[in-house]
Amino acid sequence: MNPKKISYIFKQAFKSMWRNRMMGIASIGSVTAVLIILGFVLIIVLNVNNMAMVAKETFDQIAVYIAEGVEEKQIEEMGNSFRQIDGVLGVAFQTKDYALESVKEDWGEDAILLQDLRNNPFPDTYIVQLSDVSKSDEVIAKLETFEGVDRVRYYQDAVNTLIKLSDFVKRFGAAIIIVLLLISVFIISNTIKITVLSRQREIELMQYIGATNGYVRGPFILEGVMLGLLGSVVAILLIMLGYNYSINYLAGRYVALISGMSGYLVGVEMVINDLIIIFMTIGIGIGILGSLVSLKKFLSI
């Protein structure tokens, strides 16, 4: 490509973007919207998966909450029986007071919230360590038969829930994203259409002269690319700001309440490089597709 051609293509593309700036802003906005929603979905899926991974590490422990008012002696007997169950490696007891103290420690300053509690809401708990995760179902079934056992909690349930949640977000997100992608391609193709029509005389003339494809199509493709690219840049900035803000907010305010989730969240710096590449690719893709759709419709050859 010679420099003259490149400068012609850029000049035409910028000129029509400026002349047609309202539609341009709508196009950029639509690309930004798709990408932000895509960003949301990616971030949620990423974080939920990460949570599931972290939670898996506690897979081999089952928490057995003991009902209110069970005698100390009975509790001790329960512990001994638990040890006999096939698949159990060991058993540790946590008093309700210990549970309260450790939560207070976790919450730090927020522990003030717990000061007004009249009764300790936490149960006495046995932590049952599994020797073999595959036996978890049988072990749980047996644990639940004991008198004095209030509830059996196994983290696998939480993990499964998380995985289901992430699946749902993925599917739902994919559907929304496909619809929005189509809408953006449509909006961009309409923007390009306006440019094509406003330059119709020139384009027609170029086609009679036998101008190379680059000259005829180049400016429109470039215009589409720029709109897509600008949309992705805006989306990247918004996602970066928004994500950083939310993480700090969550970490600073609520994380303690969801029992120490700070380690479960993925930091923005971990995802931003991939996000930039994904967003720019998709943004440019939408732009090119929009241009091509329009060119196919409105250029005779």
Binding site: Q207, Y208, I209, G210, A211, N213, I301
Partner: peptide
């Protein structure tokens, strides 16, 4: 189609 431009350069 994509060679039409080339053809038109004869004219």
């Amino acid at each position: 189609k994509r060679s039409v431009a080339e053809y038109r350069r004869h004219i």
